[in-house]
Design a protein around this nucleic acid. Sequence first.
DNA 1: TAAGTGTATTGGGATAATTAATACACTTAT
DNA 2: ATAAGTGTATTAATTATCCCAATACACTTA
Lengths: 125, 125
Amino acid sequence: MILLDYRDKRPIYEQVVEKLERLIASGGLEPLTKMPSVRSLAMELSVNPNTIQRAYAQLEKDGYLYTVSGRGTFVTAESDWRESRQGKALEQWRHAVRKAQEAGLSEELLREQLHQIYAQEEVPT
Amino acid sequence: MILLDYRDKRPIYEQVVEKLERLIASGGLEPLTKMPSVRSLAMELSVNPNTIQRAYAQLEKDGYLYTVSGRGTFVTAESDWRESRQGKALEQWRHAVRKAQEAGLSEELLREQLHQIYAQEEVPT
DNA sequence: TAAGTGTATTGGGATAATTAATACACTTAT
DNA sequence: ATAAGTGTATTAATTATCCCAATACACTTA
């Protein structure tokens, strides 16, 4: 399903989160499909089950997965995780705007830059 | 020059950075004035000189101070640190914009939000 | 040359983060 | 009902990181 990079010095769970998030966001996993169990994915990657559990918990917090106790964890419907993702991105963006405002940057400058960035390319992912 | 708050559980050097940054940004220290030496400020606050050194290094990285080896460290000209601060804020903001774009948020939405935020108040700090 | 400046290096101690070990609770199929 | 499969909670061990101190070095100037 995914492959770990041993040269990567980030914690394992974080790597798993990133890879799965990318996989889901790119449509590589159909909504509502069952994820591999905590134990089986742990076996497959040769890591402790708790590490996978932590990754799943994070992905659930971010809206990409949901879990039914005793049954397993599943991929969220696309509309749901898109909404969650947008909400987070918007909140972070707003924070950056306030910082920019405090630094004395004008609304006009930001509006220009905004247009310029959006003009560059159509959203890759 | 500044006063440490012992109830504050952040590291000392961080507290020093924040207090000095605030002092400089608010005009409490004239540009080009010489800062107290690493050792003297350390003595005054009863901390290790390395702690002050770390704070000064951070402030230099942020553009508030500059240092001449053997002579001392000095307050940057206002135009310079304002520029530095704006550059950093702008860069972070651009990053947030790209994230928002990737998440599928429209330029129009961001432009609206931008206007709304700027309309709220005239920049406090 | 001596005193004052910032800087680099190293290490100790504490704290936090990451992963592991184990036991528990729930669901489902046999 | 029992066993096997699922996620979860708790606790511990290990590892990494952070903060601060001690000390020595390099540079400038009186």
